[in-house]
Design a binder for these strands. Structure first.
Lengths: 172, 172
DNA sequence: CGGTATTATATGAAATTTCATATTGTTTGC
DNA sequence: GCAAACAATATGAAATTTCATATAATACCG
C-alpha cells in the first residue's frame, strides 16, 4: 500500500540522513512555530528574540549566525522588529562598525513568555519518546554540532555555508 | 571563553532542542548543498530530483510534501526544471487534476550521480561520530518522525504545518 | 602617520516566496 | 445526469529573500 516506488536500487530519501534531519526539524518546529505565529511572530523574528534572551546586545552578525540566516536578511528583519518596538539598535561605542541589538521591555516580555512555552513544548516532544532515546537525543545532537562546526579533520565537501554567514566562535 | 551571556536565568538557545535540530540540519546539509550548487542545483531542485529517484512520476502535491515546501512554490520550481530539461510534466490519465512529474534522461543522470555523492557524504558524517551514536542516529530520527507525523496523542500545539502542505500518507 | 586591506552593516535590484484565489477536473448525493 | 462540494494545480500581486556591492569604521603595515 506504499504506492509507487518501482525505481532502480532502493528507496533513498526516507532513510537519507539529511532528509531525516531536515524533516524532523521541520515537523517538530512547525508545532511551535504555529504557536509563535499566533503570538504574531514569524520564524526569523522568534529566533532573533530567543537569541536575545541569551545575549541581549548581540551584534547583528552574531544574531544572523544564531538565527541561521544571511546577514542582509537579518538587517531587514531587525528593521521590522525595531518599527514594531520589539528591539532597538545601538551602535557599539567601542567599534562604530558594529550594531548591537537590544530587547525593549515589550520585546523582552514577549520573548520570555515564548521561551517558557518553547521549553514546555520541548518537554512534550521528549515525552513522546522512549526515555532512553529522550535522554540521548540532545547530547547526541550537541556532539554532532561540534563535529560539524569544527573545521578539523575537514574531509568534507567544504566551502560555503548556506546561511552565508561565518559568525561562529570568532575568537576575536 | 563562551563570550557574553550575563542574562537572566540560563542560556537557552544553545541547548534548546528545536535549535539543535535546526542547526545540525542546517550545518550538515550546507556541506552537501554546496556540492549540489556546484552541480548547478539549488536546494529545492536537488530535493525534487532526489524525491523523483524514489518516486518517478509523483504528483506535485506529493513532491511538495517530500521536499518540504509549499505547493505553489513547488509549481514554480518545476516550471524551471522543465525549462531546464530536468523533468517533464504529464497529467495523470486517471485523474486530470493531477500532474505527474517525471525525470528526463538528463535529469535522471544528474539525480543518480548526486544521490551517490549524497550517500558518500552521509557516510562521512556518520564516520565522524562515535560508532554507537552513529548506529543510533538514523533509527532515532526515524522514530521521532513517526511520532511527529502521527496525529495520535495529539496534545501538541497543533494546527498549521509550516510547509502549508498536507501530503502525508493520504490513504486515499 | 597615510594608504590599503579588512570587517560590519546596509541597500538596490532581481529573483523567489507567500497568500489568497482562480481554474480545471472529479466525486457525491439526490 | 446534475449541482454542490472537493481536490489538485496554477497564478497574480505583494512581500520577502538573495546577491552583489556600497558605505562606514577599524586594523594593519611599511
Amino acid at each position: 500500500m506504499t504506492s509507487e516506488k518501482s525505481q532502480s536500487d532502493q528507496s533513498f530519501v526516507p532513510s537519507y540522513l539529511l532528509y531525516l534531519l531536515a524533516k524532523v526539524s521541520d515537523r517538530a518546529s512547525a508545532e511551535f512555530h504555529a504557536h509563535a505565529r499566533a503570538e504574531g511572530l514569524r520564524v526569523p523574528e522568534w529566533r532573533v528574540l530567543a537569541s536575545l534572551t541569551d545575549e541581549d546586545g548581540a551584534m547583528t552578525t552574531r544574531l544572523a549566525w544564531l538565527s541561521m540566516m544571511e546577514q542582509s536578511r537579518l538587517t531587514r528583519i531587525i528593521d521590522q522588529m525595531v518599527e514594531r518596538g520589539l528591539v532597538i539598535r545601538r551602535s557599539d561605542p567601542q567599534d562604530g562598525r558594529r550594531v548591537r541589538v537590544f530587547l525593549t521591555l515589550e520585546g523582552r516580555a514577549l520573548a520570555l513568555r515564548l521561551r517558557e512555552d518553547a521549553q514546555a513544548h520541548e518537554a512534550r516532544i521528549l515525552a513522546r519518546l522512549d526515555p532512553e532515546d529522550a535522554a540521548r537525543l540532545k547530547p547526541l545532537l550537541a556532539t554532532m554540532l561540534e563535529q560539524l562546526e569544527a573545521p578539523e579533520g575537514d574531509q568534507s565537501m567544504s566551502r560555503h555555508s548556506g546561511t552565508g554567514v561565518s559568525g561562529a566562535p570568532s575568537v576575536k
